[in-house]
């Protein structure tokens, strides 16, 4: 059961790769798909590893990604 969940606003992403590089548990990777500006946004490759620390959200220069903690008792967001 993952402790967190990543949300990505694909159209804002400029593929700088900060979130992919600095994710402590290596949840993300740049995808091969394009957004409408022609960048490769990140996608979640290991959703089970996400701790919901929101470091990706703190590093993102374009406010395109953030993580939320998941409450295991409710199975939803805290």
């Amino acid at each position: 059961m993952p402790k967190g969940r990543v949300s990505i606003v694909v159209e804002r992403c400029k593929a700088c790769g900060f979130c992919v590089e600095f994710c402590p548990t290596h949840v993300l990777a740049l995808s091969s798909a394009f957004n409408s500006k022609g960048y490769h946004p990140p996608h979640v490759v290991h959703p089970e590893k996400c701790s919901g620390c929101d470091l990706c959200g703190m590093y993102c220069p374009d406010f395109a990604i953030f993580a939320t903690k998941v409450d295991p008792a409710k199975g939803g967001d805290k």
């Binding site: 969940r5 949300s7 694909v10 995808s31 798909a33 929101d54 959200g57 406010f63 953030f66 939320t68």
Partner: peptide, 21 residues
């Protein structure tokens, strides 16, 4: 496009900095 690239419709959370932008 992989499913994870699309905004998650069941996740109602918004970016915490969104109200400041």
């Amino acid at each position: 496009m992989p499913d994870s690239l699309i905004n998650d419709p069941v996740n109602p959370a918004v970016n915490p900095v969104e109200p400041f932008l």
